[in-house]
Simulated assay, not measured.
Amino acid sequence: MKEIEKASRDAVEAARQGDQFSLMLAAIQAAQQQPVRTVQAPAPVVKSSGGAAKWAGIGVAATFLSVAIAVSLVSAAIATVCLTVCVLILRDVWNSIRKGS
């Protein structure tokens, strides 16, 4: 009888393993049939360029900068003329002093 009992236990174990195997196959098939969900990254936020106020501010700043540069160049020209006149006057005074002595 022992051989029959052993065969019976082996048959029961094989049936249990067959049930487990069929459950695993069913789970694999179900997983394969489900659609794959992909997570999409959020769309990048496009920032606006600022509009008319930004460009008006840039225009005003550029105007003030160009006026400041123009005034600086005019003052440099005036200083050059003044220095030239001073040098000519001092040269004339120096020549007068040398001839008078």
Results as ranks from 00 to 15, higher is better:
1 M>G: 12
3 E>N: 11
3 E>Y: 07
4 I>L: 12
4 I>D: 09
4 I>C: 03
5 E>T: 04
6 K>W: 05
9 R>Q: 14
10 D>E: 13
10 D>V: 05
11 A>G: 11
12 V>D: 04
13 E>Q: 15
14 A>D: 06
14 A>T: 08
15 A>N: 12
18 G>W: 11
20 Q>S: 11
22 S>R: 15
24 M>N: 09
24 M>W: 07
24 M>D: 11
25 L>T: 15
28 I>C: 10
35 P>C: 06
36 V>N: 03
44 P>C: 04
44 P>R: 07
49 S>I: 02
50 G>E: 01
52 A>Q: 14
53 A>H: 02
56 A>V: 11
60 V>S: 14
63 T>H: 08
63 T>W: 13
65 L>N: 07
67 V>W: 07
69 I>L: 14
69 I>V: 12
73 L>M: 05
73 L>I: 15
76 A>P: 00
76 A>D: 00
77 A>W: 01
78 I>D: 00
80 T>G: 08
81 V>Y: 02
81 V>L: 04
82 C>V: 14
83 L>T: 04
85 V>C: 01
87 V>D: 01
89 I>M: 03
90 L>W: 02
91 R>Q: 08
91 R>F: 03
91 R>S: 10
94 W>S: 13
96 S>Y: 04
96 S>W: 10
97 I>G: 04
99 K>N: 05
